[in-house]
Design a protein around this nucleic acid. Sequence first.
DNA 1: GAGTGGTCTAGACCACAGC
DNA 2: CTGTGGTCTAGACCACTCT
Lengths: 277, 277
Amino acid sequence: MEGRTPMKDDDVIGVEVLQDLDPDSPVSRYRQIADQLAAAVLDRRPGARLPSEYEILNRLGVSRATATQALRDLEQRGLVTRRQGKGTFVADPDRAIRSNRPGVLPSFSEDLRAAGRTTRERVIALEIASAPADVAAALGIGKGDDVWSLERIIVSDDQPVVHLTSWLSCATVPALSRSAVEATSLYEQLSQIEGSRPCSADEQWSAAVAPPTTATVLDVGRNAPVMRVVRTAYLHDERPVEYAIAYVRGETFAVSIHIDAHQHRSRLLASLTKAAG
Amino acid sequence: MEGRTPMKDDDVIGVEVLQDLDPDSPVSRYRQIADQLAAAVLDRRPGARLPSEYEILNRLGVSRATATQALRDLEQRGLVTRRQGKGTFVADPDRAIRSNRPGVLPSFSEDLRAAGRTTRERVIALEIASAPADVAAALGIGKGDDVWSLERIIVSDDQPVVHLTSWLSCATVPALSRSAVEATSLYEQLSQIEGSRPCSADEQWSAAVAPPTTATVLDVGRNAPVMRVVRTAYLHDERPVEYAIAYVRGETFAVSIHIDAHQHRSRLLASLTKAAG
DNA sequence: GAGTGGTCTAGACCACAGC
DNA sequence: CTGTGGTCTAGACCACTCT
């Protein structure tokens, strides 16, 4: 329809951004719509308006339920907010969910790049070791079994920010090379080994003092506060594939959480961001 | 089958738990179904099976979309996981979302109680002060404007765990009494003042060393690591109502995050839990 | 093959916001 | 009033899992 209230072009994402759907795509229709809109959202300022459900269904010839599902998908990713009677609008980027790439787990490097920082990874050591008790328990293998032990530093904007050690069962991940990890990333390498792509992860973030070696590597004082992150990553069938302990410079980064009780539902997003103060 | 929890035949939530819906209720049908199932889920062990969509629609006479929406609602709260071809199952409680109570923001006390600990709140000071710059900026008021300053300690299992200071604009919250806050909770009090119920919040968790007064109050050493939490709580119309800075004993509690890339979607839950190690 | 959830259609009525 | 999202119906086809 023509004749909308005069508004800056900047504040509206028109239906024109939507290309016809690919009927042969394995990707569902609502997902194709959502992905197109997600790309458009990135350029826009918070508060910009998205096409309404009816505009989408008229443009693409889908049912309303499909248009609704596309917009709800974006809402769940934290990219937009929806208001009854008003419309769908670009959300505050601080409140976006960590990874928007489907099926891919966010890594520390990704978090940092999402925060607008450069990243570089350096492998300190990659070797086969025998699993300590805590590692064996987390990976569901026997104590003393062979595991890859991978120690890395993530350097961001020329400052060492994360010191992390990962353990992976040699039974699950037969081969791993230092050059490949340095060239791409650990998760990238795992994705290329059939069936060893991590699909979910549990992380625990707590405050701690930097252990001596970490303090040296991160170039902080002996009793410096750090975020201690314990991560277990799982395969599609819930078998653990990676157990990692990371230390993040405490004064530099924080976990941001947004809690939303609108609409009688608690929603919760998180991202690694610059710490306040 | 491998799965982290073995399953018995009797780990089934039958359709019998579902009572007929109240057609006069202002609560939507899918929400009534979800709430009934949520109550049933609490008693069950992870892995227990929920009624299928078809069992629900046959039992209650709703359409399949409504049954689907109920189960998807539970999935978004982190209470269940759904698997194509298999069914819907009770999720690991560690992966549940922080607050399951609709429309209510989780507080530190709630987090601790959810972790199975007792809590007690003690008000150290409640007074009207003039807003410092950072508080004024967060609350969207002028520097020096009148604000409530509320300093509290949360004691859990006879140990001081959280030291927090909240600031609230006197313009938004005209009255506040020490006894009322001690008897219930700050958020409970705010809920009873028309229009001052917090609906959403941003939190930032970072690692820090305990400031001197906090170290004394929490009974930790001078350079002890703590979680520094900065929270801004918002009303329904997005106006800020509370700005708070809290310090949580670092070695005791952690933020747990679960990232799920199943089904081409990143999902993210968080809860305050006991720290590992 | 039977049962499950994933997706989709083509309608419908409602509550809410803004004019 | 119109336009928005919230909810709902009564179907449908599909992909996946298990037997």
